[in-house]
Design a protein around this nucleic acid. Structure first.
Lengths: 186, 186
DNA sequence: AGCAATCTGTAGCAGCCGCTACAAGCAGGC
DNA sequence: GCCTGCTTGTAGCGGCTGCTACAGATTGCT
């Protein structure tokens, strides 16, 4: 029979995935120690023991989220080089607006907001995630593209604008904007 | 001689500007009733008397912010029609990144985050503000533009992408993206 | 075995949160 | 005056916040 739950040692590393799951589901703003601890199967006492401070925990959590975003990107977007700018744009937008990415997108805007307000740990995480996406785009620009570096940044700007408009219920506006850019088809 | 401070009647309308000033300075996330009340020269008791609930207060505050954003836009951007798409884009970006707009931009990302999380009152306010900006753009597209509606939406997408990248410290990326779009010059 | 260092549970602190009960102040109508 | 209804102050509720003091358990080393 199954004995009483084991007590495997916890470390920052084993805790972070559970914490990440919790903030993805419930948001960063409402994340307080006791619910966070419960989601990770510990007590607030232990979270503070391992991380020292809530602020430090949050910073490590954001860094962890940036790392897992990087892995998720590689897994979802794959190594195949798109044939055109249009295809690169479409691939990223489909990924970003997929069902599975919705919790992350909700979290993303909180990260942007924290970054804009200068909260500790937010700006580095946000920079890293955007850097990751830019890296993927730049390394996968179509063969023979006249300006891969600039083109990747242009696409990135369009992508982020599209995602922001979608986040506030202006997805139609964004769709028509992309149509007019010539980088999407009806 | 100046007597003791008067007690002019307060109403929702007279309170909102002071409340708006406070959230612009300190953010929506940390806005709690007592500090809010102090900034408006009242007590938490009175805020709840006038608005009923913190949630209702927040919703009215967001609506008020959307209205004042609309007025600020008209005042700052003016009625003059730009000669080119480049000029329209430049004018809005200069306005949005001006010193005076920084507190508003910080607030804006909190509004987007709330909107993405489905918090009450956030989505309508965000939609309204974007709608306002889109309206200005569309009504001021250069004379003879081949596709004013699509062009305005395309510019809006670029603008929002640029602002988001700037918010997370990727202003260089955004600048190069605009350069590559052909809608900005070095 | 005995000791020391590392972990973890219990209980509680002071402080803030949104909100409310109660009563006093105030105005205008009669 | 006196009553009525709107506005306001005082005080406090239960609940949550991040954090900590203290004591006990567990572990590895010798």
């Amino acid at each position: 029979m199954a004995g009483p739950a084991k007590k495997p040692r916890m470390s920052r590393e084993t805790l972070l995935p559970a914490l990440a799951r919790h903030v993805l589901a419930h948001g960063l703003g409402q994340a307080s120690l006791r619910p966070l601890a419960q989601a990770a199967g510990t007590s607030d006492r232990m979270l503070l023991y391992h991380f020292g401070t809530k602020e430090a925990l949050l910073a490590e959590l954001l860094a962890h989220l940036a790392r897992s975003y990087s892995q998720a990107l590689d897994a979802a977007l794959g190594p195949v080089r798109p044939a055109t700018r249009r295809e690169a744009l479409a691939r990223i937008l489909i990924h970003a607006r997929s069902e599975a990415m919705q919790p992350f997108m909700a979290l993303w805007w909180e990260i942007v907001a924290g970054s804009a307000r200068g909260e500790t740990g937010f700006a580095p995480a946000a920079r890293a995630m955007i850097g990751e996406l830019l890296g993927w785009l730049e390394s996968r620009m179509p063969e023979g593209d006249p300006d891969p570096a600039g083109g990747a940044r242009y696409l990135l700007t369009l992508i982020e604008g599209t995602l922001m408009l979608a986040a506030v219920g202006h997805e139609d506006t964004a769709r028509q904007g992309l149509l007019a850019s010539g980088l999407a088809s009806a």
